[in-house]
């Protein structure tokens, strides 16, 4: 299929982009999970990474962050190598990726977002604690600060992960399936927080699997199925033709309802 990037940013925009990926290929074996992807996420926008299961959505994020080593490709953030910009980037991994029986309370997990600031031996001061509390308030979890994390529901765990990212006070937020397996109240709480981040001029990029909510939640869409399919404003990219290109025969008509409406 033809590679078509709607509204594709020019190369010089890479200097501005909070996350610019060029020629990224990731392979777990002999078969690439992500192949030669170029994409620049737009500053101050909320972008959904959308594609079928196994399309390399999460892999793209992880490889961009250096969590898994890509075969090839360059990643820059605000025009600089990503490693120099770590302090401005917050990552929210998939909730299922950790052992929730770990001996930690909700506030301990959010405090992990401050480890970069604290350094190896820096003392936890009242200002740090206040920051943790404030972040828990923003996700509606202030009443749970002392709770063991294993006692939380899936949605509450996801909110704690988001609060930890908020504690970093970053400019770019990368979220891996933040709405997977959460209740409706949590979904609303999370999207409210993300929209508030955008209102502050920050950039949000989220792997997203629910096509129906894409037009409501996001400004832009990046469609991927191993290769980049299209990137641009929802109205231009989130079209049946593009979705067909990304999902092929796997896209049920019902799932496209949201797309047609958008």
């Amino acid at each position: 299929m033809a590679l078509e990037l709607v509204g594709r940013a020019r190369i010089e925009d890479a200097v501005e982009s909070p996350l610019a990926i060029r020629g990224l290929t990731v392979s777990y074996g002999e078969k690439p999970a992500v192949f030669s992807v170029d994409v620049q996420f737009q500053r101050g926008q909320m972008t959904a990474i959308v594609g079928p299961n196994g399309a390399g959505k999460s892999t793209l994020l992880k490889a961009a962050l250096g969590i898994i080593r890509p075969l090839s490709g360059q990643v820059t953030s605000y025009g600089r190598p990503l490693d120099e910009m770590r302090a401005r980037i917050a990552y929210v991994p998939q909730r299922a990726s950790v052992d929730w029986d770990f001996p930690a309370r909700v506030c301990d997990v959010v405090m992990m977002g401050l480890y970069r600031d604290l350094g190896l031996l820096g003392r936890v001061r009242p200002t740090h604690r206040a920051r943790v509390t404030a972040c828990l308030e923003r996700v509606g979890m202030a009443g749970f600060a002392g709770r063991q994390i294993g006692q939380l529901s899936g949605g509450q765990q996801q909110r704690v992960f988001l609060a930890r990212a908020l504690a970093q006070d970053a400019d770019l937020y990368l979220l891996d399936e933040p709405f997977a397996g959460v209740d409706a109240a949590t979904e609303k709480a999370i999207i409210d927080v993300l929209k508030a981040l955008k209102a502050q001029g920050r950039t949000v990029v989220a792997v997203h699997h629910d096509l129906a909510t894409v037009p409501d939640y996001f400004d832009r869409v990046f469609l991927i199925n191993t290769t980049a399919i299209a990137e641009g404003p929802v109205a231009e990219v989130f079209t049946p033709a593009h979705l067909q290109a990304a999902y092929g025969g796997r896209l049920a008509l019902a799932q496209m309802g949201g797309a047609a409406a958008g």
Binding site: L65, P93, S97, F102
Partner: peptide
């Protein structure tokens, strides 16, 4: 606890 986040 969370190697992915640590790497991030």
């Amino acid at each position: 606890f969370d190697p992915g986040y640590a790497a991030g």
